[in-house]
Each structure stands twice: as structure tokens, then as C-alpha cells.
């Protein structure tokens, strides 16, 4: 095995596409090094992207934020302006692991590891985030929703990697929230995760919404029927009931030791409802 640590994106693209054998991107390593130790992954080359300065930046761009693929969860949590625009995305990222894990884990790594239970992914999908993918044929922008294709699988082509993730501009009276259910209070894998991003008008009526669920299907779900239930409403009881119903209907979970199908299906609706109320408060609340 070899370890390489290029210092520019171009060098990294070149190294990745010219490597012989399996080459893996190493970001925080909090998934990859565990999987290697367990013998689940045996790369011939590890390409560490943490020496690339450009990938360590959180940059304001067109009213939104571009977050480099080497930025750690802790760094996102310390960025006050980012937290104020996208509190739900940052809270989802900050739920990953412990203080120690936060010092290393990246949001792009959480996305590319493609676990159905990855905490930041529903929040990114609700935020309508876009991943910037670089590769031998240049760069392309891909909706985060379209990056995972199933457990442990992504739509990235050979030689491609995610250089950054873009969170769009936030208008007035807009906010997001993420909630997960775990049996403990921290350091556990989501049994269900729910993210809501919404915008209210001056009268407290919801004018835009996106709702996403994690851990209830082979990949993250964007639940458009749930968003439709919110849009045009004051997020009152009937709207929230319809949202919860739409989320439970969309959930297609498996049963395992962490939760039954019935439990996950119901909790998907419960969490989406609670996340909506949190987002509503953050967006300035009812008029």
C-alpha cells in the first residue's frame, strides 16, 4: 500500500486517475481507517486530501456557502455565520461521533461513505445542497441527493471525488433543522433521521419547504409530498399531521436490532413534525 498527500486539486485528480489498483480518498479517516482495520476495504493507495489548502476553506459565494471537502465538523461548528444561515446542516454534522471524531470527520466523507444512516445527508438534501465533483474530465455540480446510490455506493465515476459542497443562499425568514432518534444521547447510529428546511412569509405562511429522511431506505429520501403538506400552511396541526403521514408513507425501512419497521415508520413522521417546529421557530416563528 502507498500513501500520497498532494497539495493541489489538480495533482490529486491526476494522482487518482493515474493510480494503479484501488485508490481511495482519505479525508478524516473516521470511516475509512475503521473499515480498513476490519478488513472491509483494502486500498492499494490512500490519497490524503488534507494537505490541499483550497479544500480547507469555508467561503461565502453568491449569498451561500462553499465548504471544502477537508473541513472538519468541528470547524463548521465554530463558523458563526455558517451556523446562523444553516443551523440544521451544522447540527447534523456536529452530531457525528464525539469531540475526537468531530476534529477529523468531514461532511463530504459522510456523504461519500454512503451509509443510509449518515446524519448530515438528509440535512444537505433538505438544504438543496450541491456537491462539486472534480475528475479527469473537469468539474461538474451534482445535487447531493444524486450522490449516494445505495448502501456504501455512490454515483461518482472512477477518478472523481467531491472537492466541496455548496449550500445555497438563505432568504429572510428561512431556517432548517435536523433530528435523529438514537437509543442513547450521543455516540450512536441514527435509527431514523429527519431534516426540514423552510421559508415563511411575513404572515407566517410557509412559502417553500424541503423534507428529507435518513435511515429508512437504502439511501436518503426527499419526501416531496411532505413538503407540499407544509407549503401554503401556517404549519398548524392539520398541515403537520399531513406531513407526518407523508413521511411515514415514504419510509421503507428495514428491521434490525436498532428498530423495527413499524417503529421506524412511525418515528419518521414524529421527527419530521418536531424538526418542522424547530425550523419554524428558527425562521422567526408564526407572524
Amino acid at each position: 500500500m502507498q500513501y500520497i498527500s498532494p497539495t493541489t486539486v489538480d495533482e490529486a485528480v491526476h494522482a487518482l486517475s493515474s493510480a494503479t489498483g484501488a485508490c481511495r480518498i482519505l479525508a478524516g479517516g473516521t470511516d475509512l481507517l475503521v473499515q480498513m482495520r476490519a478488513g472491509m476495504k483494502r486500498p492499494d493507495t490512500l490519497l490524503d486530501i488534507k494537505r490541499i489548502d483550497a479544500l480547507h476553506q469555508i467561503t461565502a459565494e453568491d449569498g451561500g456557502w462553499r465548504i471544502g471537502a477537508a473541513v472538519s465538523g468541528a470547524e463548521m461548528g465554530e463558523h458563526a455565520a455558517l451556523v446562523s444561515d444553516w443551523p440544521g446542516v451544522v447540527e447534523a454534522v456536529n452530531l457525528i461521533g464525539s469531540t475526537q471524531i468531530q476534529g477529523r470527520a468531514t461532511m463530504a466523507g459522510n456523504l461519500c461513505n454512503a451509509s443510509p444512516a449518515a446524519d448530515s445527508v438528509p440535512a444537505l438534501v433538505a438544504a438543496n445542497a450541491v456537491a462539486r465533483v472534480v475528475g479527469p474530465h473537469g468539474q461538474r455540480d451534482v445535487a447531493v441527493l444524486d450522490i449516494p446510490s445505495g448502501p456504501g455506493k455512490t454515483t461518482l465515476e472512477p477518478g472523481e471525488f467531491v472537492a466541496s459542497t455548496y449550500l445555497p443562499a438563505r432568504g429572510a425568514r428561512s431556517a432548517d433543522a435536523y433530528l435523529r432518534f438514537i437509543p442513547r444521547t450521543e455516540m450512536d447510529i441514527a435509527v431514523v433521521g429527519a431534516a426540514v428546511s423552510l421559508t415563511l412569509d411575513a404572515d407566517g405562511i410557509c412559502t417553500a419547504a424541503r423534507v428529507a429522511l435518513g435511515a429508512v431506505a437504502p439511501k436518503v429520501l426527499l419526501v416531496e409530498a411532505a413538503a407540499r403538506a407544509l407549503i401554503g400552511s401556517r404549519l398548524d396541526a392539520p398541515a403537520l399531521d399531513a406531513l407526518a403521514e407523508a413521511c411515514s408513507a415514504a419510509a421503507k425501512p428495514i428491521a434490525d436490532k436498532r428498530g423495527t419497521v413499524e417503529f421506524r415508520t412511525q418515528v419518521a413522521g414524529v421527527l419530521a413534525r418536531r424538526a418542522t417546529l424547530i425550523a419554524q421557530t428558527r425562521a422567526g416563528g408564526p407572524a
Binding site: 482519505l26 478524516g28 479517516g29 490524503d48 469531540t99 475526537q100 471524531i101 476534529g103 477529523r104
Partner: peptide
């Protein structure tokens, strides 16, 4: 603060 077991 990091876990040295997850750093090369």
C-alpha cells in the same frame, strides 16, 4: 483533540 487510532 483526535483519536490517534484513526490517524495515520
Amino acid at each position: 483533540l483526535v483519536c490517534a487510532c484513526l490517524v495515520l
